[in-house]
Design a protein around this nucleic acid. Structure first.
Lengths: 165, 165
DNA sequence: AGAGTTGGTTATGATAAATAACCATCGGAC
DNA sequence: GTCCGATGGTTATTTATCATAACCAACTCT
């Protein structure tokens, strides 16, 4: 189980994704203005960028988000992290398990409620996270170059609104 | 997923215990400003809206996009549609198969190149499509209400740029 | 005619997200 | 105290999407 899994392989092959033969001659009709459609395509593109940029860390987007949250909020329980990130508890277990197996995070029983596990990062986790953040930074920078700083923050604002539509 | 399904239930159930203040008290740190993260969350939300709004049509987002494209460009080949929509040919086959099985689209061999199939809609397909578009319209309207017309078109513009980052 | 290319299909694997059932623990009601 | 409903976490399973690889038939080109 090296860091070079299908995820990484996929990321490698993504660089050359769409190359419409004749210059965009196809009429997408109203589809072109569907927010959902544009969102999906944009999300796939950025995901590809993520996988390419963070390949060496072996972190999935979900794993990175978890590391970030427990780094900013040490001692949170699993349920709290799930709630914050919109992850189902059932899906969180294996995700966390891998972080634990790689020695990036630890899970310890909360004495006050022995059902709950609180989460913390290991020093190794901190290292990996900071490396991942540095790599991620480049991705965001590329995005900012493309959208402009104002465009980027405008985009974030609009996306936040969309989440509660 | 409807607007009020697991997502909403989960959100509801997270009214947390030891959360310092109210529900949104968790600090996401830099994650909050990750375009990829916001994109993913927004995309899931809009997807949920789509599935809720178009449930009665039984169309997936991908199927709707295909119907739209062949409605605007009758006679396109499968490969052309794939290229226009960013779908792998291998994944297109079963998708199209369902449209055909439901009698919404037909596939006929192109005489000039008997490997290729050209795609067309059936009258039933046209009916379903127009119904689907009407339903989808409402979803877009909800989005527009939330973002404002200017915000919405700004968003589309930014998302289009993101696709080629 | 033969070689390489392209359009389409099939089979299959990885990932993400969802559900359902289960167990241990907690918190109250009684 | 004991019982019971609710909660935290795990497991198993399902579904959908996107990816690859191998294959066949038909086309192109020389």
């Amino acid at each position: 189980m090296s860091a070079d899994t299908a995820r990484a392989k996929a990321a490698r092959s993504l660089t050359v994704r769409s190359a419409p033969t004749s210059a965009g001659a196809v009429d997408l009709g109203p589809l072109d203005g569907f927010v959902g459609y544009r969102l999906r395509r944009a999300q796939l593109a950025v995901l590809a960028g993520f996988e390419f940029a963070l390949r060496e860390t072996g972190l999935s987007p979900g794993q990175l988000s978890v590391l970030l949250v427990i780094s900013c909020n040490p001692g949170m329980t699993q349920s709290e992290v799930c709630a914050a990130l919109g992850i189902r508890r059932a899906n969180f277990t294996p995700l966390l398990h891998e972080l634990e197996a790689r020695g990036l995070a630890i899970r310890e029983v909360l004495p006050a409620d022995r059902r709950s596990n609180t989460l913390r990062m290991t020093p190794l986790g901190r290292d990996v996270l900071s490396r991942a953040l540095a790599l991620h930074e480049r991705l965001e920078r590329r995005i900012t170059n493309s959208l402009g700083a104002a465009g980027r923050s405008q985009l974030l604002h609009l996306l936040r609104k969309l989440e509660s539509v």
